[in-house]
Amino acid sequence: MDSGNGSEDGTPWGRGDGQGDDDDINRDWGHKDIPNDVEVLKRVWRNEKSAPEILAYESLLVERVQEQIANMEENILAAAESLDDMMLSIFEMDVNRLMFLLRAYLRVRLSKIDKFALHIMRTADLWDRLSPQEQEYASKFVDVLSKHMHDSVLGKLEKAYESMMKQAASSEENDMIVEPNLDTYVFCRSKTALGTFQLDDKGDETVDMMPNDLYILRYRPVRNLIETDRIELV
């Protein structure tokens, strides 16, 4: 996400900053025209859930969302007396829905970290995709995992079979590290026409991506399109 907290530059990103209630500038931004953070987070969550590998952490988005949740909760608390039952419960639903999305997003990332912790830690590019908190979690997770593996099984085996990374000392590669399968298939769509897109090295396989149509494609060739936000996963 490249747009910061937009209360200064007039984008709706900063909405829910506590001034929005009677701020006419904010109201001019129709919620239909520009995706608000709820929509953005929903897309980010769907992408994360559908992609086999861990994607870059959306730190600015999460910060904005957390801020909006905190502000809204404050507003609700402050206005609780003057609001009727229904309005109160509607505001609470609005916050709860966003909190659900945020938790779902963080959770699906944690489950990927659990699954691929060793692989992520050993790959600089992937490691950089984690938030500082996630990095801390991953390190601790690997510590606990290796202690457990050592205490329960590996430590009791002969030296050649002691490694958590390799099946045996004779393995050339770290063949016990679980990696995501990037040659899996994903359901995706694009909002704009992407033209002809090449799916293999030779150019035998191409696809003509039309706006809003759904495609099932192999993940590896399209992963850059997700990073650059040109397609979304569904």
């Binding site: 298939y185 994903v186 359901f187 799916l199 396989e205 696809v207 759904l214 495609y215 099932i216």
Partner: peptide, 22 residues
């Protein structure tokens, strides 16, 4: 099959066919 195009398919249909298809 290297690409499958699904015009006008719906969310629930996608979710239901996903595991098998993938």
């Amino acid at each position: 099959t290297h690409a499958v195009k699904l015009k006008n398919i719906s969310a629930m249909e996608v979710n239901r066919m996903r595991t098998f298809t993938v």
